[in-house]
Amino acid sequence: MIEVEGLCKRYGAVSAVDDLSFTARPGVVTGFLGPNGAGKSTTMRVMLGLASPDAGRALVGGRRYAELDRPLCQVGALLETAAPHRGRSGYAHLLWLARSQRIGARRVREVLELVGLADAGRRRVGGYSQGMRQRLGLAAALLGDPAIVILDEPSNGLDPEGIRWLRGLLRGLASEGRTVLVSSHLIGEVARTADRLVVVARGRLVADAETSAFTGDLEDEFLRLTGGVR
């Protein structure tokens, strides 16, 4: 369970997140939608303790992220600001993460296998394609077998095959009873995967409903909600 309550975050005069509240429940994929700059990444960074809120709070599994012991075993995250060092191998990146959480090296090989990087693990991340980097990020998110998964634009850089694979992965995680929150600026992709959609624009909540409740053309609906022009 992820609970966001009255969250506010400003950068100088700009309000990145403005009194945002929503909940992501276990067992379902929650899509977190909005145009670029709507405050999705900022909200996720606050959830994960990387940025501090000016007001309100974000709880993961009922607690603030900073209070978690071995956090990667409870919450897995893919975020652009948490990208690995480019000079380190994918295996070494996962290995230090594993060490910090008291996870064995066997699990590192397991998740590399799971995301299809078993062969590329020893190579430096700087030489990876964007899709491979995204897969490594997913491996890091799944390393601790977490009950909550928070993914910021996970389909970025994936090829059509990778996107289909990701869709299956997310559905599988939710069906195992995990809480899955996935952000995107691409409505079509998220609508195919998510059970519920949380839509934000300019830092504010504009819609929060079952995916099936969005009737008619989703793109038109999205643009109307987020104030874009048709």
Binding site: G49, L50, A66, H93
Partner: peptide, 14 residues
């Protein structure tokens, strides 16, 4: 300087 803070603080938020 050579250690990106993002992943470091996800693993060790304190």
């Amino acid at each position: 300087s050579g250690d990106p803070l993002g992943p470091a603080l996800l693993a060790v938020p304190g």
